[in-house]
Design a protein around this nucleic acid. Sequence first.
DNA 1: CCATCTATGTGACCGAAGTCACTGACAATG
DNA 2: CATTGTCAGTGACTTCGGTCACATAGATGG
Lengths: 210, 210
Amino acid sequence: MTIEQLQTHIPYLEKELLQQIEQHGVFKTLPPQTYLLREGSHVNMLPLVLSGRVKVLSTTEERDLLLYYIEEGQSCIMSFAAAIENHQSRVEALTETETELLLLPVNQLQQWLNRYPSIHRFMYKLYNQRYLELVERVNHLIFWKMEDRLLKYLHEQARLLQSRELPLTHQQIAQDLGSVREVISRVLKKLEAEGKISQRRHLICLLEEN
Amino acid sequence: MTIEQLQTHIPYLEKELLQQIEQHGVFKTLPPQTYLLREGSHVNMLPLVLSGRVKVLSTTEERDLLLYYIEEGQSCIMSFAAAIENHQSRVEALTETETELLLLPVNQLQQWLNRYPSIHRFMYKLYNQRYLELVERVNHLIFWKMEDRLLKYLHEQARLLQSRELPLTHQQIAQDLGSVREVISRVLKKLEAEGKISQRRHLICLLEEN
DNA sequence: CCATCTATGTGACCGAAGTCACTGACAATG
DNA sequence: CATTGTCAGTGACTTCGGTCACATAGATGG
């Protein structure tokens, strides 16, 4: 079950590595809103998401900051970095949906890194994706207005949820965008007036493509 | 000459790899303000900075965006990504000072990646550093005022230049921070009034530690 | 059904930063 | 030295987004 899922998402993993993973990996299913990593904790398992979604936040002095979502077939670069550089976690990670995970023991991982090049391919790809996502975000923070950032956010949520009906509160959105509730309410009203969304308590519906 | 410098900065590289690098790497010295990579160009050499400094920009629709400086003993993650994923460059890179470079042929690099684990250690470390830098930047964009972002920028420049005297124009600073000249002028005046800096044409002096 | 809690709506206000228009200072060059 | 171009200073204005205060609506649970 688990290994087949993995192979689908990351087809280039060596057969032997897959066996190793099957042998040493720990399969786990977590309910929504469960922390799998807290700030400051030691990382001894690298998570690999088989199904579901994990949200990763950076906890700064100011406020929490959304970093990325770990989707099916992905892992967590911040956990990986903490693992191989052997420092504590700078981030927290929690499930957003029920999530099936494969947890890879870090000491095993260290050995695999020397034997199976495909892991590097996997991690580089992921690092690069995450980096480019952040670059885009910086770009939008500098050049875009809240209305556009919000719209983009909603469409991204729609992609993640595979639905145009988004069960979000204004407060949550504000946190993810680094803004405040009143502003999000105001801008959502504007989008509603423009016919781009409709909303009711706990739910926002996207009315337009893209 | 070149290899000794390299060993100083990255002591954990395998002896054999160093020999390979010496054999296949191309040593090059570039004057300031020279492009070593343009957007859209194909990457067939991975640059390694031995001395000097290279500025890397993302060229978006809106405006250019400062990504990072490649310093002594560092390489370029965006070039690396383009090389191993075999796509064109999404960024441009140009020297800020006279710069000594070691250019590693990408086809050789591919082989080295399978033989010498130390390269991975090097690249992961760099990727992680760049990622954390961007996270910090997002944080500051969201939570900090221009005055504080500007001060931080000036101190970073002081570190890079090894001097409190920064030969910068307001226009350059504005570009790096994603703002406009007038705003930077205004805020610099304020900092000057507060006794934190002094300035004259083409030069800003930091008057305080940190 | 009433009390409470959470989510949302909204108006008034404020401050930060971007825009525009113009001025003046300085440097370089013929 | 006169012209030109770059750099910096500045006031007036606008806009966006954050803050505050308060209202209302819907859900929830005893």
